[in-house]
Design a binder for these strands. Structure first.
Length: 423
RNA sequence: GGAAAGAUGGCAGAGCGGUCGAAUGCGGCGGUCUUGAAAACCGUUGACCUGCGAGGGUCCGGGGGUUCGAAUCCCUCUCUUUCCGCCA
């Protein structure tokens, strides 16, 4: 949720930024919010005056009773009845205005950073770097789903039987590869100063609201209505929500966490060739990094996180590119996002394996995550997160890019975790 | 699943329906003392809305009610703890 104060004090800048996200009727929406806020304040002023009078009378009545002046007390009571009626009416008006204001505020996406490129769709994302070398595969090279079957390391059919499409089984060296990647990613992050967390895989509604999955992306999460829980779509949700409602002390900055979790996504409406094999699953493993930082330093931290993610891909020897997402492709909650895509050499496609974002104060405002600044004032923290990394597409690229006539070569950095060097 | 108890400030923990935004302890911050630190002692220390300010208002798990007046009484929801049962 954008801070109301920011909207009021920087109306034009706010509108300009939201236009980068192609928000329809921004001026009108912003001005409605400002008007509602003025209305709210006017009502509150009157309502506060009434309450002040009520409080004063109640005090007087207390005194009168004590002094035994009952008649005078009864007279005062009459006045209170009038005030009560007024207060009730105003309270209802206030609640209605607040509800409307809140609904309008919460439906506004985060303001993107002013440097975010304009654009309508993923085609307009800006490539800001390309690393590694793209392997030349022979003409008979296999896509990863064929390799999975050939070496019996990921079984999609079995997943269909036991659960459903998008819930594969990993077997033998495939399962071991999963475990190796998770450990490799967790260790790398720990060495870089991230404190490891193993979070719950289900969260309550308040947590979903805190990080912005609710109400915006309700249909994307698996829900357990009987208990009011949601299966997490990413470890970002439970880990960031650790700090929901907290006032952290400034000397804790930056707060760095890493967590591995299974991620559950309904992916409603996405079908076709994009979902083949490991390209898009309903359940997948991911290691996530989460950072909470002082507003003045959050963009430094974003760079640091990008560096960390890039380092992982370098070590894995996968060719990748970094995209700065345009206004049309960036998420609802994000102010700036970089996607990392690896080259999947047999599919001849770029696959997104990480998304690193700065949410600025957007999540913190929803969660009321604050700190006391050096001037003693309460301020909202900035929150950031990134995948480091999501496994399935990494596995897809590793299998495809490293295939040879006598097996699939595993990258050096994973061998201590794998116990073998070839599948 | 059955039974009971509870939810108060960063934490712990008091609180006859009016003088309670809330005792006390711990913690935090400032100071005295000290070469420095610890201890001791003194002082200070909630958040939010609104107003230029003085000030006003709100908040004792959420919601509703009784009352001139509710942290305190009633209803309801949620959650937590303990015991029993079941089970990893």
């Amino acid at each position: 949720m954008i801070q109301l104060q920011y909207i009021k004090e920087h109306r034009d800048e706010c509108i300009e930024r939201l236009k980068i996200k192609n928000v329809a009727d921004v001026e009108q929406r912003i001005d409605e919010i400002i008007a509602l806020d003025e209305k709210r304040r006017a009502i509150q002023k009157d309502s506060d005056a009434i309450k002040a009078e009520q409080n004063a009378i109640a005090k007087e009545i207390g005194m009168l009773f004590k002094q035994g002046r009952r008649d005078e007390a009864e007279t005062k009571k009459a006045r209170t009845a009038e005030l009560k009626a007024d207060e009730k009416r105003m309270g209802e008006e206030m609640a209605a205005v607040e509800q409307e204001l809140n609904a309008k505020l919460i439906s506004l996406p985060n303001t993107p950073h002013i440097s975010v490129p304009r654009g309508k769709s993923a085609d307009d994302n800006l490539e800001v770097g390309r690393f590694g070398t793209m392997p030349e595969l022979p003409a008979d090279a296999l896509p990863h789903w064929d390799l999975c079957a050939k070496y019996d390391i990921v079984d999609f059919e079995l997943g269909n039987k036991v659960t459903g499409a998008g819930f594969p089984f990993y077997k033998g060296k495939g399962a071991r590869l999963q475990r190796a990647l998770i450990n490799f990613f967790l260790n790398e992050a720990t060495n870089a100063g991230y404190v490891e967390i193993q979070p719950p895989l289900m969260v309550n509604e308040a947590s979903g609201l805190g990080t912005g999955q609710l109400p915006d992306k309700e249909g994307q999460m698996y829900a357990i209505p009987l208990d009011g829980f949601y299966m997490i779509p990413t470890a970002e949700v439970p880990i960031t929500n650790i700090y929901r409602g907290e006032i952290v002390s400034a000397d804790q900055f930056p707060i760095r966490h890493v967590g591995y979790s299974e991620c559950f996504r309904r992916e409603a409406g996405s079908y076709g060739k994009d979902v083949r094999g490991l390209n898009r699953l309903h359940e997948f493993s991911k290691v996530e990094i989460v950072v909470i930082e002082h507003p003045d330093r959050s963009y430094e931290r974003l760079e640091e996180m990008k560096h960390h993610v890039g380092g992982l891909l370098d070590k894995l020897g996968l060719p990748y590119r970094i995209l700065k997402l345009c206004g049309g492709d960036i998420s609802f909650t994000s102010a700036m996002t970089f996607d990392f895509e690896v080259w999947s050499a047999a599919q001849k496609r770029w696959l997104e394996v990480s998304s690193v974002s700065n949410f600025e104060a957007f999540q913190a405002n929803r969660m009321k995550l604050r700190f006391k600044d050096s001037d003693g004032k309460m301020r909202l923290c900035h929150t950031l997160n990134g995948s480091a990394l999501a496994l399935p597409r990494i596995v897809a690229a590793l299998l495809e890019n490293n295939q040879t006539p006598d097996g699939i070569t595993m990258p050096e950095c994973l061998r201590p975790y794998l116990g073998f060097d070839k599948i």
